[in-house]
């Protein structure tokens, strides 16, 4: 009911409101504002992508916190970046005054761990312990949970997701159903938690993420001419009926269906590119840019959790981009392909 009420409220032009100031966060907001000035500028990322070799690409960021990446193997590079991300998340946890927000963001790893564990469980592979340790749940309990079916140890929201995912798999024998059920459970949990916290920013953030995921899903369904229609996530601003209708519309007319939404440009550019180039690149790039645009609006907030959350997400994206470029350079991939991937 709450989800339905929120989804009707499309009363903004480009981005939903981000809420007001919370003066408890004066220190945290100021600190991330200073940290944002130390982030790698776009021009440096482009230089990295244009560099001739891996070493030259690594040299481009030699004055930043990513110094140790030069002359490393891919495995070592991966470890450096994982350590960077861990340290970023620890810093986020220290800066956030509301522990419930830290917990909410940690559930991203819980759901990712569950996706892997459930896949292993249904394909009769060993559950193992090689999971992310940055979630709320201790990966050491997973073996006990899945082997003895003690799903209640996972907490109510994860338990429901896992049980539904296993059931859905055995009903259809389709491994993709696991991802879909867990994505859906995660989206619902995020939105419900944000609404419970009465956080306008988090509600907007998760709703935008759901919309962008649904738009890419819609384009994928159209491209693969799939008959599946129950794969859209609930809780976004766009009505699911509109997305279903878009799947059955010609590529060059899909954009018109979204004319009254903030996603018109993403959909029209993305759909035309899929239609002509058979690639989702433009849709994915436009989605990333839209999300970044929303995060950038937090610069209007002098004190509040919004800039801190935005910094976490922006910095995580930076780490992903550095990883993408350096991995591509190690594997001698084409410059244009890397530049296309890192976006505008």
């Amino acid at each position: 009911m709450m989800l339905r009420l929120k989804a009707k409220a499309l009363d903004f032009y480009t981005y939903p409101p981000i809420g007001g100031d919370d003066w408890r966060y004066g220190y945290a907001a100021a600190r991330v504002r200073a940290l944002q000035t130390q982030m790698i500028p776009k021009s440096t990322l482009v230089d990295m992508a244009n560099a001739g070799t891996f070493e030259q690409a690594a040299e481009s960021i030699s004055t930043t916190e990513y110094i140790p990446v030069a002359s490393k193997t891919l495995a070592e590079l991966e470890q450096v970046l994982i350590a960077q991300r861990r340290s970023l998340r620890e810093q986020f946890a220290r800066l956030m005054i509301d522990n419930s927000i830290v917990k909410l963001f940690k559930t991203r790893d819980d759901f990712a761990n569950m996706r892997l564990a459930v896949r292993r469980r249904v394909t009769d592979k060993a559950i193992g312990t090689d999971y992310s340790s940055q979630g709320n749940l201790n990966p050491e309990i997973f073996e006990e949970v899945f082997e003895q079916e003690k799903y209640e140890l996972l907490g109510e929201h994860i338990q429901n997701a896992v049980e539904q995912a296993i059931l859905a798999y055995y009903t259809d024998r389709d491994i993709c159903r696991i991802d879909h059920i867990i994505d859906r459970a995660q989206a619902e949990y995020n939105i419900q938690t944000a609404l419970k916290m009465k956080s306008e920013f988090l509600t907007g953030l998760f709703s935008i993420k759901i919309d962008l995921t649904n738009i890419i899903t819609m384009l994928r369904l159209k491209f693969t001419e799939s008959e599946k229609r129950k794969v859209f996530l609930p809780g976004g601003y766009i009505e699911i009926e509109r997305l279903k209708q878009a799947v059955d519309t010609e590529y060059d007319s899909i954009g018109q269906l979204f004319y009254a939404t903030p996603y018109y440009r993403i959909v029209s550019v993305g759909a035309n590119y899929v239609g002509t180039e058979k690639s989702f690149l433009k849709a994915e790039q436009a989605s990333e840019n839209h999300l970044s645009g929303y995060l950038n609006t937090t610069s209007q907030i002098t004190s509040g959790p919004q800039p801190v959350i935005a910094y976490l997400l922006q910095k995580e994206k930076e780490i992903r981009t550095v990883r993408l470029i350096l991995t591509a350079k190690k594997n001698l991939l084409d410059k244009k392909m890397i530049l296309d991937r890192i976006g505008e």
Binding site: A28, V32, A34, S303
Partner: peptide, 12 residues
Amino acid sequence: IAGKSATGVLSE
């Protein structure tokens, strides 16, 4: 209020 913000920036 101002002091909290200043210490946040000064820490970096």
